[in-house]
Structures are given as structure tokens and as C-alpha cells.
């Protein structure tokens, strides 16, 4: 599904990713974890083609992505910061994204799920952070794509929505899709993730199941295991 070979990326003097290799087979939920500044977002953005690598190659769905853009048709991406053009209304934004992707979508189900009906005619600049994040989620999940990338999906969500999101993620997994998730909420990761990809200093430091991680660090608690692996 995703194949990353020898990926290097430097921002100014700051080497963010160095010689990173990653292979993700289809199906399942992969949590990309790591301390602040370890390159999680850079890795995701490289896969999305938003960041141009200095060196190395990335393939998505068995095709190299270099200077291509059509492969993004097969990816649903939830950005970390839910900022949208303020002049647009919610329904216009949804209509616009649908128009841009030209793919069948099921936004109505999601709008009902997150209770967004009263906001459909409001301008995006007037929405609260949490509501914006809900709109963000609708935009991400409304298309049927084999790869879903979520960057901090739980940001600003109330507990009820949090649970709805978890269920949504599990539904998608049940359909056999691949999900990449970054999150700082370890509880959330532990609940949904099948496999952990741990980044440290621009490299994959650990890749495997939660159980394997616990075994490796000799911890019983997932959060402690993560803390332990970071401090090693």
C-alpha cells in the first residue's frame, strides 16, 4: 500500500527525516507516534506530496508519487489544523470538495452523525473549533478511498463525538481500508491502533503491534511503554 525508501528531508539546517524506510501493507490501522518534532507530520505530508523530499522515493498503491497528483484521489486526509476559507458556508465547502474530487460521497449520513445540520448555512469563520473539526471529519470520511490519513483527529472534540469518531474509524477498518493516524491521546491510540510506527530523530525506531511494544519495553501500560521507548 505504502512504500517509503531512504527518505531524507531537511528544513533549513534541521534534518527532520533521515534515511527513513517504511512499508505498510494494506488493511488495518497504523498509529504514527513519536515525540514532538520527530517528523510525524512531515512523513504524512511527504506521503501526500505536500512536502517535497530531498532524497528517497515514496510509492502509494504501488505507484511512485513523484510529481504526480492523481493518486491523491485514493487518499482521504484530515489535516491537523481545521482552517477553511472563512467566506464560504459549510454546505458550499462540502459542495466544493465534492466538485473537486468528482467521486461518489455520503456526506448526509455523516452530517447527521455529527449533528451538523444547524450549521450548514453558517459561514466557516463563525464556527467554533470543535464544529470546524466536525466539518473536517465530514470532508475526510465522505469519500470511499482505500487509504485514510488522520492527523490529530481528536483535536477539540467533545467526548460524545470522540466515541462516534472511534466507531467511524473501526467501520472503515472493517471495510478493509488502511488508516494512518497520528495522535497525542494514547488512550485513543491504544483503543484503535493495530500497529504502532514509532518515529525518533527522523527514523523508524519501532514498528509492530502494541503487544510487541509492551514486551520490548517490559511495560504493562501502553502509555508507559511509549514513554519508555522515547527516553531510551
Amino acid at each position: 500500500m505504502i512504500q517509503v525508501d531512504n527518505l531524507h528531508k531537511k528544513f533549513g539546517k534541521n534534518q527532520v527525516l533521515s534515511a527513513l524506510d517504511l512499508k505498510i501493507e494494506g488493511g488495518g490501522i497504523f498509529a504514527i507516534l513519536g515525540p514532538n518534532g520527530s517528523g510525524k507530520t512531515t512523513l504524512i505530508k511527504s506521503i501526500l506530496g505536500m512536502v517535497v523530499p530531498n532524497k528517497g522515493s515514496i510509492s502509494v498503491l504501488d505507484k511512485p508519487i513523484k510529481s504526480g497528483w492523481k493518486y491523491r484521489q485514493e487518499i482521504n486526509y484530515l489535516p491537523q489544523i481545521a482552517n477553511f476559507p472563512g467566506n464560504l458556508k459549510v454546505k458550499e465547502l462540502i459542495a466544493m470538495i465534492k466538485d473537486l474530487r468528482q467521486k461518489p460521497s455520503e456526506e448526509n449520513k455523516l452530517i447527521t452523525l455529527f449533528g451538523l445540520e444547524p450549521f450548514m448555512d453558517k459561514k466557516l469563520s463563525t464556527l467554533s473549533g470543535g464544529t470546524k473539526q466536525k466539518v473536517n471529519l465530514v470532508l475526510t470520511f465522505m469519500f470511499n478511498s482505500p487509504l485514510i490519513i488522520l492527523d490529530e483527529p481528536t483535536n477539540g472534540l467533545d467526548p460524545a463525538t470522540h466515541i462516534k469518531l472511534k466507531n467511524l474509524i473501526k467501520e472503515e477498518k472493517a471495510k478493509g481500508k488502511t488508516l494512518l493516524i497520528t495522535s497525542h491521546i494514547m488512550q485513543f491510540v491504544e483503543d484503535v491502533a493495530d500497529e504502532i510506527v514509532f518515529l525518533l530523530e527522523g527514523k523508524i525506531y519501532f514498528k509492530g503491534s502494541i503487544e510487541a511494544l509492551k514486551t520490548k519495553t517490559e511495560q504493562t501500560n501502553f502509555e508507559h511503554a511509549i514513554a519508555a521507548i522515547s527516553s531510551n
Binding site: 505536500m50 493518486y71 491523491r72 484521489q73 486526509y77 489544523i81 473537486l100 474530487r101
Partner: peptide, 14 residues
């Protein structure tokens, strides 16, 4: 329109 741009960058658009 930085946000708008970033939103678009993740879409299948050149």
C-alpha cells in the same frame, strides 16, 4: 488563503 491552499493541496489537484 493559506488554509484553503493546504486543504486543496491534499486534494487530487495539480
Amino acid at each position: 488563503s493559506k488554509e484553503f491552499t493546504e486543504l486543496l493541496l491534499a486534494q487530487p489537484i495539480k
